[in-house]
Simulated scan of single mutants.
Amino acid sequence: MSLAKPAMRGLLGKRLRFHLPIAFALSLVAAAAFKYGVTEPRKQAYADFYKQYDATKEFNNMRDAGVFESVRPTGE
Rank of each mutant, 00 (worst) to 15 (best):
Arg17Phe: 01
Ala7Thr: 08
Gly13Asn: 07
Leu3Tyr: 07
Thr74His: 12
Ala55Pro: 00
Asn60Ser: 08
Met62Lys: 14
Ala4Met: 06
Glu69Val: 02
Lys14Ile: 01
Thr39Phe: 14
His19Ser: 10
Gly37Gln: 12
Arg9Ser: 14
Thr56Tyr: 13
Pro73Thr: 12
Ile22Asp: 05
Ala65Leu: 03
Gly66Val: 11
Leu11His: 11
Lys35Leu: 14
Ala47Cys: 06
Arg72Asp: 10
Arg63Val: 05
Leu16Val: 10
Gln44His: 13
Glu58Met: 13
Leu16Lys: 10
Phe24Asp: 07
Pro6Phe: 13
Glu58Ala: 15
Val38Ala: 11
Gln44Leu: 06
Gly66Lys: 13
Gly10Asn: 02
Phe49Glu: 07
Met1His: 10
Ala55Ile: 01
Leu12Ala: 15
Val38His: 06
Phe18Cys: 10
Glu40Trp: 04
Ala33Pro: 00
Phe68Arg: 03
Phe34Thr: 04
Ser70Glu: 14
Thr56Glu: 15
Ser27Asn: 15
Arg42Cys: 07
Ala47Gln: 14
Gly66Gln: 09
Lys51His: 04
Lys14Ser: 12
Leu3Gly: 08
Leu11Asp: 03
Met8Cys: 10
Ala32Pro: 00
Tyr50Cys: 01
His19Lys: 04
Lys5Asp: 11
Pro21Thr: 11
Ala47Ser: 05
Ala25Met: 05
Lys14Val: 09
Glu58Lys: 14
Leu11Ser: 09
Ala30Met: 12
Lys57Thr: 10
Gly37Val: 03
Gln44Lys: 14
Thr39Pro: 00
Asp54Gln: 09
Ser70Asn: 10
Ala25Glu: 09
Glu76Asp: 15
Asp54Lys: 01
Ala4Thr: 08
Ser2Tyr: 10
Gly75Lys: 12
Gly13Gln: 06
Phe59Thr: 10
Val67Glu: 11
Asn60Phe: 04
Ala25Val: 06
Leu26Ser: 09
Leu16Glu: 07
Ala30Leu: 12
Glu69Arg: 08
Lys35Tyr: 14
Met1Phe: 15
Asp48Gly: 08
Lys51Pro: 00
Phe24Thr: 05
Asp64Arg: 13
Ala47Trp: 02
Ser27Thr: 07
Asp54Met: 05
His19Arg: 09
Asp54Val: 08
Ala33Tyr: 05
Ala7Tyr: 03
Ala32Lys: 07
Asn60Tyr: 12
